[in-house]
Amino acid sequence: MKKSKAFWVYIIFALVIYTIVQVMISGGTLDLYYQNILIQMCINIMLAVSLHIVIGITGQFSIGHAGFMAVGAYFSAIATMNLGLPFFVALIIGAVAAGFAGLLVGIPTLRLKGDYLAIATLGFAEIIRIVFLNIDYVGGAAGMVVTNMTTWTFAFVGVVLTIFVIANFTNSRHGRGAIAIREDEIAADAMGINTTYYKVVAFTIGAIFAGLAGGIYSHNFFIIQPTTFNFLKSFDILIYVVLGGLGSLSGSVIAAIFLTIVSAYLSNFPETRMIIYSLVLILVMLYRPTGLMGTKEITHLFKFGKKGGSKV
């Protein structure tokens, strides 16, 4: 009963947001520029949330997320452009392929810890990129021309799905296992939690949604090239998660939204953009190293007020 109630609340709010934006688009209030920013925001949210499950929930430090995004982008582009499949089938293919890549990368590397894991995932992401660079079927360095198919609807459904699955995962038995690993891997192991299994599951889910985001990405920007998915892209995603707060889903979402806007705004100041960006990064780390939200969710802020009323 209660579970379904929360589920319906979620769905209704998603629908409300969707309808408002859709009406604004059809009404012409939101021109292509803002639609484009919104789609990008959705892609960034998906990427941030899919990395959040790896870093924030399971505590595994991966800085190679762009690699899985690349797999999703390329496989879905092959599906639509070369095989002529419908867009949503292509998105599923991209996500599954990325999930498979996540599994392949995750099984050997997740035995590593901390910085070593970080560098290994970075290495894998670069290898994935170099592989695409050397395959002529996908255009090599020149890249693949992709027809624009992404709409606000696809992007928003992607975000809803990503948040739904990952929030659900977090609150499931699996999620609690993953959080236990984040807090203390050795203790978790001693408690009988199969740490490798939970880590690989979380990593694969993260890769699946990164792949989905990649598919939406590739069909929004007309062309994909291997250089797009270099390690700077991975760092971008990492920054969303870290700035938002490690372990906070809403934090990742807010940071992704915030930085998308900042990035769009700062494109007017090309020379200083990266300087401001890096300064913000350093200052946040120095003065609030847990990120903006810490491990708190945005709902914690409302909880005090609501506590009495909603305790039915």
């Binding site: 209660k2 579970k3 929360a6 589920f7 609340v9 979620y10 709010f13 998603a14 409300v16 947001i17 408002i20 934006v21 604004m24 209030t29 939101l30 021109d31 520029y33 803002y34 920013i37 919104l38 925001m41 949210i45 948040i163 739904f164 929030a167 659900n168 977090t170 609150n171 889903l249 809403s250 979402v253 807010i254 939204i257 806007i261 969710e297 945005i298 709902t299 914690h300 409302f302 909603s310």
Partner: peptide
């Protein structure tokens, strides 16, 4: 946890909506 999860989404989607709204005006 369920409520928390519902309201996380609520809050985040509100932000998207609000942004969309104000960006529209700006446009």
């Amino acid at each position: 946890t369920l409520k928390r999860f519902a309201s996380v989404f609520l809050a985040s989607s509100l932000i998207v909506g609000a942004l969309a709204a104000c960006s529209g005006k700006e446009g």
